[in-house]
Amino acid sequence: MTGCEYYERCRRFIKAKLNLLGTVFSEENKYDECFCKDCHERSGRPNAYRTGNPEQNAVHQIGWARFELDVHDHKIVYMKIHQKWHVAFHGTEADTVKPILDANMLLLPGDIVLGGDKLEQRKEHTEEHDEKFDPKNIFVSPSIKYVEQKSYAKSVSWIDEHTSTEYDAKVAFEVWIRPGSYEIHGQTLEAGSERIDEYFRNDSLEWFTKERPATVLYGLLIKLDSKQKHWSRFLPKFHLFWFT
Rank of each mutant, 00 (worst) to 15 (best):
S157M: 12
S157N: 07
W158V: 15
I159K: 08
D160G: 05
H162E: 06
H162F: 06
T163S: 04
T165Q: 05
E166R: 08
E166S: 03
D168C: 01
D168Y: 03
A169M: 04
A169E: 03
A169N: 07
K170E: 03
K170A: 09
V171H: 05
A172V: 11
A172K: 12
P179Q: 09
G180H: 07
S181C: 09
S181L: 06
Y182E: 01
Y182R: 02
I184K: 11
I184R: 12
T188E: 03
T188D: 02
A191Y: 12
A191S: 14
G192H: 11
S193P: 10
S193W: 11
E194P: 04
E194V: 15
E194Q: 13
I196W: 03
I196M: 02
D197S: 08
D197R: 11
E198I: 13
Y199P: 04
Y199H: 12
F200S: 07
F200I: 14
F200W: 13
R201H: 08
R201P: 02
D203W: 01
S204N: 09
E206N: 10
W207Q: 05
T209R: 04
K210T: 05
T215Q: 03
L217V: 15
L217Q: 04
Y218H: 08
L220F: 12
L220W: 13
K223V: 15
L224H: 08
D225Q: 13
K227C: 00
Q228Y: 15
K229A: 13
